[in-house]
Simulated scan of single mutants.
Amino acid sequence: MGAQGCWGLVVILGFLLQAQVLVSQNLTCNFKDLTALQYFMGNLTMKPEGWTMDSSTDCCGWEGITCEPQSAGRVIKLELPKKRLSGKLSDALAALDQLKTLNLSHNFLKDSLPLSLFRMPNLEQLDLSNNDFSGQIPESINLHSIRSFDISSNHFNGSLPSHICVNSSRIRFLDMAVNYFSGDVLSGLGKCSFLEELNLGTDDLNGGVTEDIFQLQNLKVLGLQYNNLGGKLSPGIANLSNLVRFDISSNNFSGEIPDVFGQLKSFQFLVAHSNRFSGRIPSTVSNSPTISLLNLRNNSLEGFIYLNCSAMVALNSLDLATNKFTGPVPDNLPLCRQLRNANLARNNFSGQIPESFREFHSLSYLSVSNSSLRNISSALQILQQCRT
């Protein structure tokens, strides 16, 4: 084909592409979906900008609406975050049976959620976080396509809806934090075998943690912080082979921390402050080459502090304050080459700041207050040398 023929082909393809774009921009909203959206709008105290009750309007052009060209203008996305919406959700939303994304986060929506919302067959992403919703989550949840479910920062109460995984097993992201869910973490969450992130922090959960959570081998983030969970921490953590972040801070866990973290090859963040742990720092923690943040503040850990800084090449932040550690301040900490922040305050150390801290060039912050150290003037002279 000559140069002229190739140029002609490019022109034809350009016209076809332009025509396709024009078609997608001139979709006609499905009448059933238009009616559902207008009912939704009718329950709001202030309608979204550009929305109207006119039955001849094309809702595919409304703010926050995405329609699917291949399905006769069916609405597949409803996204209105941070629009200062107030009012409550209408049952009519369930008529959007092709909807894949519903994002109404960071608004002022209130009252309980309609049962029909939990029976939308094609819904993949649900984000209702940071609103004023309340009430209990229904026992019957049938969201077969759901991948991301976020109802955090609301006022939901009752039992934690662990049953969500029975008919919604494909969830990858599940966030129910900052609500008023109470009682035990019941079994059921283990059925969400694809789950990568589970956030249950800042609720009113108490009792123990169901063992089936520790069957979630794809889990990367597990947040249980700021609850009233207690008992011994299960060694089943070792089964979470892809875990990166584990936060159980501000609970009532007790006993020794299981020495099982060596099996977690991607583990970076251990946040377990403000519990009642005793014993020593587990050797699989103090020899971890992947941990970058270690926070065990405000427990009852004891003995000498031993960290293998030759192995802990990623450690950046260390907080061991308010424990019962004894002996000298570890003189090998400068060998943790990435360590910038170290809080060792309120322990029972003996001696003084080690001379080796003159070479602690990575250090930006150090606290050893109320730790029984002597010769403060000497410590200040040593720490003055901590500069790059």
Rank of each mutant, 00 (worst) to 15 (best):
V166Y: 06
N167T: 09
N167A: 09
N167K: 08
S169E: 10
R170F: 12
R170Y: 11
R170I: 06
R170D: 13
R170P: 05
I171H: 04
I171K: 03
I171T: 02
R172S: 12
F173G: 01
F173P: 00
F173V: 03
F173N: 06
L174M: 12
L174G: 02
L174C: 04
D175Y: 00
D175L: 00
D175K: 02
M176V: 08
M176W: 07
A177H: 05
A177C: 06
V178S: 05
N179C: 04
Y180L: 13
Y180F: 12
Y180A: 13
Y180Q: 14
F181R: 12
F181H: 11
F181E: 00
S182F: 14
S182T: 08
S182L: 14
S182D: 14
S182C: 14
G183A: 07
G183T: 07
D184F: 13
D184N: 12
D184V: 12
V185I: 15
V185M: 06
V185E: 02
V185Y: 04
V185G: 06
V185L: 09
S187Q: 11
S187V: 08
S187N: 10
S187A: 11
L189V: 05
G190S: 07
K191W: 07
K191A: 09
C192P: 00
C192T: 08
C192D: 02
S193A: 09
S193Y: 08
S193T: 07
F194H: 13
F194R: 14
L195T: 06
E196K: 15
E196H: 14
E197W: 07
L198Q: 04
N199Q: 12
N199V: 01
